[in-house]
Design a binder for these strands. Structure first.
Length: 666
RNA sequence: GCGCCCGUAGCUCAGCUGGAUAGAGCAACGGACUUCUAAUCCGUAGGUCGGAGGUUCGAAUCCUCCCGGGCGUGCCA
């Protein structure tokens, strides 16, 4: 889903592509009224053999005008004024128009980038206010790998849209009002280790949370197990009957049998997991005793949550005591990830508004009571959007609606992006539809959805023992692994190690954290992706390291040549593109602005990662083929130095827009 | 049952609103270091784009059906 594509805030920057499109527009205006549609068919050539850019509009135009597409292409070329930019356009195949830029023009455009702090990107003229809802972990539960994608993608979008010149508010809509607090309160009353709490409050609270949820889970699992076993038997028997029928030739049962087989397998898995969970508690003497003593702990926890929500002063005081240290623990991870939020308005913030939300929906006759719950029914959807449960409690649907009202009315949001798991797609469809009916039709809502992180076994990423992976330990491991690679490489340098301890540590941090982020960002966010240490920290290929290395090499050139980059830029060096690889690099550098805009409009950081990889690759090829410092011709040397400087700036800027650090040396 | 998503090279994935001979990385194989850092570069090989129809001048992309997988589905978030 494109965001703001037609909004007033979106405007393609001044760049090669935009200029070519303007030229085509003038030529197209002779032929059609809606030239906009066709200028978008001018795009970078998908194959270098066809030149630098191609226009694909002659074929559809031929159809509409009832003319031969090649003739249309010819007459388009005839009225096209691009001789200052390109070689004479060529018509190829069924009517493609191929464009190859003049060397001089490309060189001049590249030279313009040299003293342009925005690297050819023009900031939007009419910024929109984007509120970006991302990360949103539950307070007091340790963050885990599941929070990674939302955090990393959301942060990249904050940065990219901000660079575009949009007004951006990143908001961490934390879960600070949920059932986990009931569990912690319950744990605090029953199991507190006061010394541990004094020493490390968050650690102790996390322990209490895990303990209570484990005991509650034990009883729940234990209660459910017999039913699951008998259901498994039942299904298994039914499956046997079906298979017999199929064996006897009744093919019509095949699909039903398949479904059943999946269900049986699923049940078996659930049962096995349950048995493991129960055994783990039962074989632990301490845990077993606690479980035995507290059979009603889940109910008790729910009661504590209800009391908190009802305004019970004691529970409220505990909540207020717990919250700051929990938030501080979260912030420590964000600092490490270098992620910042402009706002952190959690669920609790919206609590006072919820009753009014429901009332307002009822008044407008959008919501009505059904089976005891207050629901909004959206046409075309089976499931209702429940804003108040039959027990009177509000749901996250209610909170989300209150949040929308706040963001639009108080914060003047034009666009709200939700960087959330794809599984919540249905919730957001209902939410957006309800919000529009409720009166927020002017606001653009987008669910920036993403797939699951899978382990190497293709199942959701877990530790070997089956627990979810804590985010902190994930980051630690990345850095440890990165450090090994840094050490290995530095130790292996032909002239001996170059990096001191502090530098090695800094490089390992950049490479490790950058590797994790890049692995996430370079996949299309819609698809699930397989987490792999080896791939993300590989020293070769399409990784963060590859670009960080290219960047470090460039700085190495300036260091060794004792060339001051700022002085170089101010000298206004001429760009000479004598070599094919220099030309290819210049082309890549000129595409920066477009890569930014596509990333922003599509909310797809992988567009930017792909661009950066291509640019780094163009540089590496150039680096291999074209000596810079050794180049005898001074003009040519300065031109190459300027290309190096530009590349370093594009890479550093691009990576920083993805939240990834670069190093001076590695 | 209904709804959503996915199936592209041995592996992991790109492929923008349909465009030319479907691309990358890894792995494999062959080359390039008295180095401006080889954490690099260049080259070779590898694909009935799950299958069958349809729309179109033109389909990995749009439509229908089928096969295979995942997820969601009334009071968790």
């Amino acid at each position: 889903m494109a965001v703001g594509r037609r909004g007033p805030g979106y405007r393609t920057g001044m760049n090669l592509l935009a200029e070519l499109r303007r030229r085509f527009q003038q030529a197209l205006d002779h032929l059609v009224d809606d030239s906009d549609v066709y200028t978008s068919m001018v795009r970078p050539a998908q194959d270098a053999r066809f030149g630098d850019y191609q226009a694909n509009c002659a074929m559809p135009l031929g159809k509409i005008l009832g003319r031969n597409p090649r003739d249309v292409a010819e007459s388009l070329v005839a009225s096209l004024k691009v001789d200052d930019l390109c070689e004479p356009p060529e018509v190829a195949g069924p009517g493609f128009i191929n464009l190859k830029l003049h060397q001089e023009w490309l060189a001049a455009e590249t030279a313009r980038l040299v003293d342009d702090p925005r690297l050819g990107h023009q900031a939007v003229e009419d910024p929109l206010h984007y509120v970006i809802d991302f990360s949103s972990p539950n307070v007091a539960k340790p963050m885990h790998v599941g929070h990674l994608r939302s955090t990393v993608i959301g942060d990249a979008l904050v940065r990219v849209l901000g660079f575009q010149g949009q007004r951006v508010t990143g908001d961490n809509h934390v879960g600070d009002w949920g059932t986990q607090f009931g569990m912690i309160i319950q744990g605090y009353r029953q199991f507190l280790d006061a010394d541990a709490y004094a020493e490390d409050a968050v650690g102790e609270l996390a322990r209490l949370y895990r303990l209570v949820s484990r005991i509650a889970g034990y009883h729940e699992t234990s209660a459910a197990l017999p039913g699951q076993r008998s259901r498994w038997q039942e299904r298994q028997a039914e499956l046997g009957r079906l298979e017999e029928m199929i064996a006897e030739g009744d093919k019509s049962r095949k699909s039903a049998a398949k479904k059943l087989r999946a269900e049986v397998a699923g049940l078996a898995e659930t049962i096995e997991a349950a048995e493991v969970e129960l055994a783990a508690v039962e074989t632990d003497e301490h845990l077993a005793r606690l479980a035995d003593q507290h059979p009603e702990i889940a109910e008790a926890s729910r009661a504590e949550t209800a009391k908190l929500h009802a305004g019970d002063p004691e529970n409220r005081a505990l909540w207020e005591e717990f919250l700051p240290s929990c938030l501080e623990a979260m912030d420590a991870i964000y600092r490490r990830l270098d992620v910042e939020f402009a706002e952190r308005l959690g669920e609790s913030y919206y609590q006072p508004m919820l009753a009014d939300v429901v009332e307002s929906l009822e008044q407008r006759e959008l919501a009505r009571t059904s089976e005891g719950a207050v629901c909004v029914f959206i046409e075309g959807n089976d499931a209702p959007f429940i804003v108040r449960k039959s027990d009177g409690a509000f749901t996250y649907a209610t909170t989300d609606l209150a949040t929308i009202r706040h963001r639009v009315e108080q914060q003047q949001a034009d666009v709200i992006l939700y960087v959330v798991d794809a599984r919540q797609g249905e919730h957001f469809r209902l939410l957006f539809d309800t919000a529009r009916l409720w009166g927020f039709a002017e606001t653009e809502f987008t669910h920036v959805s993403f797939g699951t992180v899978l382990g190497e076994d293709r199942r959701p990423f877990k530790t070997r023992s089956g627990d979810t992976v804590g985010l902190e330990s994930l980051l630690d491991e990345a850095v440890v692994r990165a450090r090994r690679i840094v050490d290995e490489n530095d130790d292996a340098k032909p002239e001996g190690p170059e990096l001191d301890e502090a530098t090695r540590a800094a490089v390992a941090e950049a490479v490790g954290i950058g590797g994790i982020k890049y692995a996430d960002l370079h996949h299309n966010r819609d698809s699930d992706y397989q987490f792999s240490w080896d791939k993300m920290l590989a020293t070769n290929g399409d990784t963060a390291t590859y670009m960080q290395y290219a960047h470090a090499r460039i700085l190495g050139i300036f260091r060794r040549g004792e060339v001051d980059r700022e002085t170089l830029r101010q000298g206004g060096p001429l760009i000479v593109l004598g070599d094919e690889v220099e030309r290819a690099l210049a082309m890549a550098l000129n595409r920066f602005a477009d890569a930014i805009d596509v990333t922003a409009t599509e909310c797809r950081p992988n567009v930017l990662t792909q661009y950066l990889f291509e640019t780094a690759n163009a540089f590496s090829t150039f680096y291999n083929a074209c000596p810079v410092l050794k180049e005898p011709d001074a003009g040519r040397r300065d031109s190459r130095l300027a290309l190096c400087d530009l590349t370093a700036r594009v890479l550093a800027r691009g990576l920083s827009l993805l939240g990834i650090d670069v190093c001076e040396q590695m």
